[in-house]
Every structure is written in structure tokens, then in C-alpha cells.
Design a binder for these strands. Structure first.
Lengths: 247, 247
DNA sequence: TGTACATCAGTGAACGCGCGTTCACTGATGTAC
DNA sequence: TGTACATCAGTGAACGCGCGTTCACTGATGTAC
């Protein structure tokens, strides 16, 4: 109960703080280079150079180039996941379409703002690199945001469950998925959500990777339209006075 | 009108044939390496080595590494485009859902069979590489197959055009697109097709790039379900006895 | 048909570059008594 | 509080590697007369 924390603790955290800060700076610089060179071009030596260090010094912070890549991947998943969560949570709890659309828009905005980090996690896999287990959790944050909206909406009776029945195989897969992530949710609803989920990322990837090739660009209007239509496809009903429809 | 072609011509084609054959072999070997190293790892030296040539010899065939990449990209677009066209054309002309679904399945099958070529054209862009104009035509073959099905279906009255109106911006973009590729087709129909188009590639990319992470895998059942549902979303009506519904 | 010349494919050496990773080291920071 | 030791961050040199591209060259293939 001393007024000042024990000096032992303080000094330890001094070194640890320096370490944490440099770790952050290394990742920041690496992200900056990602934007220029892509994941394959990311070079420990170039990062060190930019930071005014010798390249071998980085090995105090990351045991190898792949570990640095893994850290960047996890950070990127966490960043887009956090953005989706925050945006979705900012909408009124009972405006399920609003919460869903907000999450989609947040992912879209994050992708446009961080195209190379987006490519890192949703683009072609880096050859020779195997994503470790530690990326699975962060990677599931975005889909979990969407599923949470559906759970709440379903509980509130604001989600329709119509449409054709699933085949046996798909029904089994979806029920297993529901048991893990959303007990009580109809399997077909989860499958429709997966359709919307893949459409969302397909659309963003096409926009970022240049597949629209001037046809529907700028793609903002198409994005809004598709998001609206897929919410209806999934079964999210609008609420009076709470529509999220835009321009 | 001599019985044998003039020797001048024959000998010229002899050299030209050798050239064409080696060009083909170079691309084949490069494709093989793509599967191991990815686009960024593609190395002229490694290709030459495998072919038993000296690396500088490749410069007789491709003026630079980027030109070889461009050739591979164009070939890949042409391959997937041809696969989609052939599959779609193999279905009865009046079975519009069948033709659409066949095209989607062909793209899917091609992607699974050539994951690295798929990644080359639909994955993250290769940093520092700008796709030249020559790729635009081949890249549009797949969407044009889908549009052709819609044009024929629309002309036959087998495509519904319902759903909410488009916003002004989107309507303008879609009408310009329709004028270029499908005169007479409602703009909203083209936009719905674009939704299905992005969903198709989003779904395939997620499957290939590992985003499903065991949840809906193997993804064949989901693929079939999504394809069916999106045909209905687009407005393609089934024909009696011509349904393409599977498993 | 035969000869003289032009075109082209492929060679081998070289240039200049950057990379990831290891290792023995110096000197600063933190710890135990 | 002061000293002796342990831990850790960062250095600088080195290893071994592969890359794209250029260039002067040899020898084969194609062309014109």
C-alpha cells in the first residue's frame, strides 16, 4: 500500500514499455511497406532500415518474417472486426437492419481505407505461409457481428424464415454451425447469412482489386443497393421509423 | 495451285512452329511454378532452368517478366471464360436457369482445378504490376456469358423484373452499362446480375482462400444452394421440366 | 540447284541488387543481496 | 544505498542465396538471287 508503485515494478515496465512501443513501431512500418510492396515484398531489412536499426535487431521482436506477417494478419482481422462491432453497436439495438447495414458499411469503409491490409487477409494467400490457429478467432469477429444481429432479430421476431428447404448435406453443416455459434437459429437462416457474407466480401474484393473496371464505379451506390437487397434476402424485416435505407 | 505448299512457306512455318511450341512450354512451366510459389515468386530463371535453357534465352520469347505474367493472366481469363461459355452453351437454349447455373458451376470447377491461376486473376493484385488493356476483353467473358443468358431469357419472357427501384446514381451507371453490353435489358436486372456475379466470386474466393475454415466445408452443397437462390433473386424463372435444381 | 547474306535462337558470363538469418560482441538496463 | 551479477537490446559482419536484365558471341535456319 505504498504511495508509489515499487521501483522494481516501475523499472521493469520501463523496459517493457520500450519493447511494446518498438513492437508497435515495427508493425506500423511494416504496414506502411505492405501498401507499397504487398505481402510478398515485405522485407525485414527494409523495415529495419526505415526504423534506423540494423536488420538483425528485429529478431529481438519477431523470431522470423512469418511471425511478423502473422502479427499483421491478426491485427488486420482485429481492426476490421472491431470496426464492424463498433459500427453495429452504435445503431439502436432494435434496428436490426440498421445494425446489419452498419457492420457492412464499416467493413467496406475499413477495406477502402486499408486496401493492402484487406488484401493481406482476404486476398490470395501468401504462398508458403500457413496461417496459424491464432488467426481463427480474430477472423471470425466480422461474421459473428452479423450472426449476433440475426440472433437478436430472431429473438425479437424481426427475422423471417422462409424460402426453400436445405438439402441434407447443407442442413447438417449449417446445424453444426448453428450449434457452435448461434443456438436456436434456424439453419436455413444461417445459410442465407453466409450468402450475404460472401456477397459482401466478393463485392468489396471486386471493387478493390479492379474487377468492376469502370462499369459500376464508383461502387458506393451499388454497395448500398446490394446491402439492402441482401438484408431482405436474409430475412431481416424493416422496423417502422428505423429503416436504414439511404440515397 | 501446286500440290505441296511452297518450300519457303514450309520452312518459315517450321521455325515459327518451334517458336510457338516453346512459347507454349514456357507458359506451361510458368503455370506449374505459379502453383508452388504464387505470382510474386514466379521466376524467369527457375522457368528457364526447368526447361533446360539459360535464363537469357527466355528474352527471345517474352521481353520481360511482366510480359510473361500478362500472358498468363490473359490465358487464365480466356480459360475460365471458355469453360463458362462451353458449359452454358451445352444446356438447352431455352433452359435459362440451366444455362446460368452451368456457367457458374463451370467457373467454380475451373477455380478448384486451377486455384493458383484463379488467384492470379481474382486474388489480390500483384504489387507493382499494372494489368494492360489487353486483359480487359478476356476478363469480361464470364460476365458476358451471364448477360447473354439474361438477354435471351428476357427476350423469351422468362425473366422477371421486379424489386425496388434503383437510386439515380446507380440507375445511371447501370443504364450506361446496359447500353454497352445488353441493349434493351432493364437496368435493375443488370444490377441484380452484378449482385449474383459478385456473390459467385466471393463464394469461390472464400472457399479457395480458406475463409470458410471448416464451417460450411466441403462447400459444394452451399455453392449449389447459393447459385439456385441467386438465380431466383436475379429474376430467372424456372421452366417446366427444365429445372436445374440438384441435390 | 547453289551460293552469299540476313535473321534469329540460344549461350555464358557478368552487373548490381536485395533478401532472411546467424553469431559473437558491446553496453545499457534490471535484479538480488 | 551500493555493489555484483544477470538479462536484454542493439551492432556489425558474414553466409549463402536467388533474382531480372544486358551483352557480345556462336551457330543454325531462312531468304534472295
Amino acid at each position: 500500500m505504498s504511495e508509489t508503485p515499487p521501483p522494481v515494478k516501475a523499472s521493469r515496465t520501463a523496459r517493457e514499455r520500450a519493447r511494446a512501443e518498438l513492437t508497435r513501431e515495427i508493425k506500423e512500418e511494416a504496414r506502411r511497406q505492405l501498401a507499397v510492396t504487398g505481402a510478398d515484398g515485405l522485407s525485414l531489412r527494409a523495415v529495419a532500415r526505415q526504423l534506423g536499426m540494423v536488420s538483425s535487431a528485429l529478431y529481438r521482436y519477431f523470431p522470423s518474417r512469418d511471425d511478423l506477417l502473422t502479427a499483421l494478419i491478426i491485427d488486420a482481422y482485429d481492426a476490421v472486426g472491431a470496426a464492424a462491432e463498433a459500427a453495429s453497436d452504435a445503431a439502436p439495438g432494435s434496428d436490426f437492419r440498421g445494425r446489419w447495414a452498419a457492420a457492412c458499411r464499416a467493413v467496406h469503409a475499413w477495406a477502402l481505407a486499408h486496401p493492402h491490409e484487406y488484401a493481406l487477409i482476404y486476398g490470395s494467400p501468401v504462398p508458403g505461409y500457413k496461417a496459424p490457429e491464432a488467426t481463427v478467432g480474430p477472423a471470425s469477429r466480422v461474421p459473428l457481428v452479423l450472426i449476433r444481429v440475426l440472433r437478436d432479430g430472431w429473438a425479437a421476431g424481426a427475422v423471417a424464415d422462409d424460402g426453400p428447404a436445405l438439402g441434407d448435406v447443407l442442413a447438417g453443416q449449417a446445424e453444426r454451425l448453428a450449434a457452435d455459434t448461434a443456438p436456436g437459429l434456424p439453419a436455413a437462416l444461417l445459410v442465407r447469412a453466409a450468402v450475404a457474407w460472401t456477397q459482401l466480401f466478393g463485392m468489396i474484393s471486386f471493387e478493390l482489386f479492379g474487377q468492376f473496371a469502370r462499369t459500376l464505379e464508383p461502387a458506393g451506390a451499388f454497395f448500398e443497393y446490394a446491402t439492402e437487397r441482401l438484408m431482405s434476402f436474409v430475412g431481416l424485416r424493416g422496423v417502422l421509423g428505423g429503416s436504414s435505407l439511404r440515397g
